[in-house]
């Protein structure tokens, strides 16, 4: 229990939706990427990819429609897409 409380202190960005909304879209995208994508698989997988926008969109659509990440809102998907396109695009 103590560690969970500590986590809340150590990860202030996760503390609440209102605070989060003040982040830049890319910072917000990073946070949602790390929070949601890491729930089912390690982040090593998406971080190993170098994909164009169309392919990233395809991947995210599949996560929602094929792999059951149905809790992702349209806003989550949009912000995550912008983040991965920017950071994990073609070299």
């Amino acid at each position: 229990m103590r560690t969970l409380c500590l986590l809340l202190i150590l990860f202030p960005a996760f503390a609440g939706a209102e605070e989060a909304a003040q982040n830049s879209p890319l910072a917000e995208g990073k946070q949602r990427f790390e929070t949601h994508c890491g729930i089912c698989h390690s982040l090593a997988l998406p971080k190993s990819q170098r994909l164009d926008r169309a392919t990233w969109k395809w991947v995210i659509d599949d996560m929602v429609n094929e792999f059951g990440a149905v809790w992702l809102t349209a806003e989550d998907q949009r912000l995550i897409l912008e983040y991965v396109v920017k950071h994990y695009g073609p070299e």
């Binding site: 560690t3 969970l4 500590l6 986590l7 809340l8 150590l10 990860f11 960005a13 996760f14 503390a15 609440g16 939706a17 790390e34 929070t35 890491g38 729930i39 390690s42 149905v70 809790w71």
Partner: peptide
């Protein structure tokens, strides 16, 4: 703490965590 990763993210979801976890 050293194994943070996902559980940190889940715990760190704060206000939204309960709803997300329920989903």
């Amino acid at each position: 703490l050293r194994r943070t990763g996902v559980i940190a993210a889940l715990a760190g979801m704060g206000a939204g965590a309960e709803v997300t976890l329920q989903r």
